Computed example of a mutant assay.
Amino acid sequence: MILLTFTRNEAIPKEKVIWPKQYPIYVGDTIGVTTYYQKLHWHDVLEINLIKSGSGYYMINGQRFEFREGDILMINSNDLHCAYEKDNLVMLVISFAPFWLLGNLRYDSEILSPFKEMGAHFTNLLDRDHPSIGLLRDILLELQVEHENERQSFASMVYSQLLRFLALVNREFRMEGVGKPKEKVNSAQLEKVRQVIYAMEEKFGHPWTLEELAALVYLSPSRFSDIFRRVVGSAPLVYLIHIRLERAMILLETTNMKIMEVAYECGFRTLSNFNRLFKQQYGVSPRISKKKNYQITVR
């Protein structure tokens, strides 16, 4: 059994996975992108995504990666990232603990290089036109079949497929130099964004202004807004609305608070504005969302 916990670092929640020692891997399909994963987050696992259908984009450490059916993405531990769906997204997600493969470093010291050298010799989005990309897709799908069928020695089969995948990426997709974006976001800037998002999460009902948020990390509003946009993919106050709407949904689903009380608790100053933004985000009105929750509660 794999448990997900969320802890606070200096900035935003860190997704921490408590792994079973003998089989520290998660394999499963996701349909669409949940509201949590539309928020910037990070975790202590290594992750591989195969896009089975649909399209969307990732924001990873300030870079935007457009993806479509057939693409494969690799996300390193501690990468700041969030995902957005464009249409009909189904994605195979494979995440695993790095310690599972450490023993193999005695035989192949480069087996984890696709993650360790990310940004230097590898990119998060693998070349979709590479001759070996089809073989990589097949390996991941075979890994999923072994995981789901749980036949005798399935853990060894999953392990071997994972090793095969990483070895092939290391052999075929290594580049001498990865092109850097013209305005790369550095680690200090990433940390500033983390700090601001942490403040947003902690005090989501506060009437934040752009000036206040920028002052938290000692930047001018224009400079802060530019960095935030490059890291997250949206303006700071737009992202804040996203956080508030998510908290509102949780309150509607888990409490008996009135809709107006929820709106004010989450920082919305007018009910009409809250209703409009909520429906825009979730496709239903707060009233309908609360009614569904009530029906589930009384049954």
Score class of each variant (00 low, 15 high):
Met1Gly: 13
Met1Asn: 09
Thr5Glu: 14
Ile12Glu: 12
Pro13Phe: 13
Pro13Thr: 05
Glu15Phe: 11
Val17Phe: 13
Val17Trp: 13
Lys21Cys: 05
Lys21Asn: 12
Asp29Met: 12
Asp29Asn: 15
Val33Leu: 06
Tyr36Gln: 08
Tyr36Ile: 10
Leu40Val: 15
His41Val: 01
His41Gln: 07
His43Trp: 00
Val45Arg: 00
Glu47Trp: 00
Asn49Phe: 06
Leu50Asn: 03
Ser53Gln: 08
Asn61Val: 08
Asn61His: 05
Gly62Lys: 13
Glu66Tyr: 07
Phe67Ser: 00
Asp71Phe: 09
Asp71Ser: 08
Leu73Met: 11
Ser77Gln: 14
Asn78Tyr: 14
Tyr84Asp: 03
Lys86Gln: 10
Asp87Arg: 10
Asn88Asp: 14
Val90Cys: 04
Met91Cys: 13
Pro98Leu: 05
Pro98Arg: 07
Phe99Ile: 15
Leu101Cys: 02
Leu102Gly: 04
Arg106Ser: 10
Pro114Asn: 09
His121Leu: 08
Phe122Thr: 00
Asn124Tyr: 09
Asn124Lys: 03
Ser132Leu: 06
Leu136Gly: 02
Leu136Ile: 11
Leu141Glu: 15
Val145Met: 06
His147Trp: 12
Asn149Gly: 00
Glu150Asn: 09
Phe154Val: 08
Phe154Leu: 06
Met157Leu: 15
Ser160Ile: 07
Gln161Asp: 14
Arg164Glu: 12
Leu166Gln: 14
Leu168His: 03
Val169Ile: 10
Val169Gln: 01
Asn170Gln: 15
Asn170Phe: 04
Arg171Met: 08
Met175Gly: 01
Gly179His: 14
Glu183Asn: 15
Lys184Cys: 02
Ala188Asp: 12
Leu190Asn: 01
Leu190Ala: 04
Glu191Ile: 02
Val193Ser: 05
Val196Leu: 09
Val196Ile: 10
Glu201Lys: 02
Gly205Asn: 12
Pro207Ala: 08
Pro207Asp: 11
Pro207Trp: 05
Trp208Asn: 04
Trp208Leu: 09
Thr209Leu: 02
Leu213Gly: 10
Ala214Val: 13
Ala214Cys: 14
Ala215Gln: 10
Leu216Pro: 02
Leu219Cys: 13
Ser220Pro: 04
Ser222Asp: 15
Arg223Leu: 10
Arg223Thr: 09
Arg229Asp: 03
Val231Asp: 05
Ala235Glu: 15
Leu237His: 00
Val238Glu: 15
Ile241Cys: 08
His242Tyr: 06
Ile243Phe: 11
Arg244Gly: 02
Arg247Thr: 04
Met249Gly: 01
Ile250Cys: 03
Ile250Glu: 10
Leu251Gly: 00
Thr254Cys: 07
Asn256Ala: 07
Lys258Met: 11
Glu261Ile: 09
Val262Arg: 07
Thr270Glu: 14
Thr270Phe: 11
Ser272Asn: 14
Asn273Lys: 09
Asn273Gly: 09
Asn273Ile: 05
Phe278Thr: 06
Phe278Tyr: 14
Lys279His: 08
Gly283Val: 10
Ile288Trp: 06
Ile288Cys: 01
Ser289Tyr: 12
Lys291Asp: 13
Tyr294Glu: 14
